[in-house]
Amino acid sequence: MRKMVLLAAIGLVALAAPANAQGSKELVVYCSVLNEWCTLMVQEFEKKTGVKVTMTQKGSGETVTQLRAEAANPRADIFYGGVGDQHMEAAEAGLTVEYRSPMLAELHPWARRQAEQSGHRSVGIYAGALGFVWNSELLAKKKLDEPKCWADLLKPAYKDEIQMSNPSSSGTAYVTLATIIQIMGEEPAFAYLKKLHANINQYTRSGPAPVRNAARGETTIGINFLHDGVAEAAAGFPLKVAGPCEGTGYEIGSMSIVKGGKNPENARAWYDWALTAEIQNKAKTVKSFQVPSNMKASAPEQMPKLDQIKLIDYDFARYGSGVERKRIITRWEKEVGSLPK
């Protein structure tokens, strides 16, 4: 026993190697897109610049929590990917710094608007539209119609066939709430959500879960970002996707530079580089089918074109603010989430 403890103590000392973040040849990235995409970005950046990139992949909510906790002594330089709301919140909390990239001119207007609304503390790197994803085999077996509009989802035939994520835990679900409110107005929107409640079989905790569950036949329809559905369809599942006829909201996947990071120059180099068409075009090679923010980059063919989907004029300034988000989520929890099934 004593020997084991001694060995363990030696091992413990061997582990005392902190992630060294000093020197200008390094960069620490907190990455909130799919792991393959993160790895691709890291490899390409290392190849191009020779900078050693240390990357940690986490969900965007977890990343913001980590940035908050580390605020007194920041460890990261770049926060890459994840829904724009989270970047907006990081900006609001003063966790990120202002930076105007020379690449801004090449970006789609929606990506630039994310930058402007966050006081240039963030910028759009991709967009993903919200919509319906369904398992076409299950739908046919149950002889149900394909959902086309938000209004369709209230059909009694869909009882217990629809899944969406839970607004109190998932950024995707919050985009859904904000979208429905912006289409219908707040009061009718909540009346709609209460009716929809009868058809929802589960409010999943994580955002992409409805797509995974629809792919594997655990639910028939999911409300989700379309690119997640397209990725699962590409993996061989019988999934179909559509944008709602009344219009739909979207997320702007964003990127920010962390305040107090140890390698600000490399962070800016990454920032500019990540906005180029060349690297953005490579996302689809690792099954990420979001629409890239550089106008010269091409959108993936598998994905319904953004101009074929009726996009609403999403008010990111209002619905991205922490106060409004808290109010809407609390109201949903009180009035909808607690309703009996």
Partner: peptide, 25 residues
């Protein structure tokens, strides 16, 4: 996390209070 469906328990609720959309530590 995987199985609770709509049955809420404290452990997951706490996790999502921290990392979820409302970031309420």
């Amino acid at each position: 996390l995987v199985l609770a469906g709509n049955y809420e328990v404290l452990a997951t609720k706490i996790f999502f209070a921290v990392v979820g959309a409302s970031h309420d530590q």
